[in-house]
Design a protein around this nucleic acid. Structure first.
Length: 273
DNA sequence: GTCCATGTTCTTTA
DNA sequence: CTAAAGAACATGGA
């Protein structure tokens, strides 16, 4: 489900209900889904207060008081849902946090049918280990440097979270279309003007998706259960054989890094030298 | 039954 | 050393 705009929207919709709340009860329904060292997560979580809810790349980082951190990754189909106490538990719920914020009680359910996501106790760790620069913090000079040191197809580089954190399959394709760069172009062959165009395209695409609360293809909803709207504005993603919105040529699909990649063969230039 | 899916990680291959 | 390909994880929808 989640790339940067979706994960940020989950965080934004979680904050009003959960920030400052105390965890008064913890139910672990599927222990295999939860990574915690030694002690039981129930013991670690229960009694602490939620001090901060933030996003880094596609990770949700929850800072607790007394000081400790919890990481939630939504994987492909993960959801965090805010529910009233007593509302029926959704299928594939792995963890439920019972929160009290002043006199109000709410439940936070962590749901993930495919179980590609994870909940992990971080203790003192920051939770940003292994991640490259935030996609929204990317600046032309930084992107130029990244491109110069790689011959990989640009699409593969954009998906590499250890280089740039936050882009996934949808926004990598949409950003490359906006920058008019072919996904197979070797990173180091992208001309400087095109690199700067890509930098702007990434930022513009993510901010616009964020304004539309992300893309809902099938599973994604925010913490209040609301779907995103940006999928209606996709220019290439999932549009094989449909006309390019810019030139009317048919959108093509190829497989790269094991993922479908959609692009317009007329608008997106394959730079080779 | 088939193929495909917003992600990550591991193994194999080159 | 780099990095690509492929499989794996588990479930469900078309």
């Amino acid at each position: 489900m989640p790339e940067l705009p979706e994960v940020q929207t989950v965080v934004n919709t979680l904050i009003p209900h959960a920030l400052g709340a105390r965890i008064i009860r913890t139910e672990i329904i599927r222990p295999q889904f939860i990574h915690a060292p030694g002690k039981k997560l129930e013991t670690l979580l229960t009694g602490r207060r939620i001090d901060q809810i933030a996003r880094r790349g596609k990770r949700i980082l929850i800072t607790l008081d007394p000081q400790a951190r919890l990481l939630i990754h939504l994987g492909m189909t993960g959801r965090i849902l805010i529910l009233q106490p007593g509302e029926s538990r959704r299928p594939h719920t792995h963890l439920v946090l019972h929160l009290q914020k002043r006199s109000r009680l709410v439940e936070v359910q962590c749901v993930d049918p495919r179980r590609f996501g994870e909940v992990r106790w971080l203790g003192d760790a920051r939770g940003d280990e292994g991640l490259g620069i935030e996609a929204l913090d990317l600046r032309p000079a930084h992107l130029r440097a990244l491109l110069a040191q790689s011959r990989r197809p640009i699409k593969n580089l954009l998906l590499d979270q250890s280089r740039i954190a936050g882009l996934g399959n949808i926004y990598a394709d949409e950003s490359l279309f906006a920058a008019r760069i072919h996904p197979l172009t070797p990173a180091c062959r992208i001309p400087l003007e095109a690199a700067d165009r890509l930098c702007r395209a990434i930022r513009h695409t993510l901010l616009k998706a964020l304004r539309h609360h992300g893309s809902t293809l099938r599973d994604y909803v925010d913490a209040t259960g609301t779907a995103g709207r940006y999928q209606k504005l996709h220019k290439v993603y999932g549009r094989e054989n449909e006309p390019c919105r810019r030139c009317r040529n048919a959108i093509q699909r190829i497989v790269l890094a094991g993922r479908s990649s959609w692009y317009c063969p007329r608008c997106q230039i394959l730079h080779t030298k």
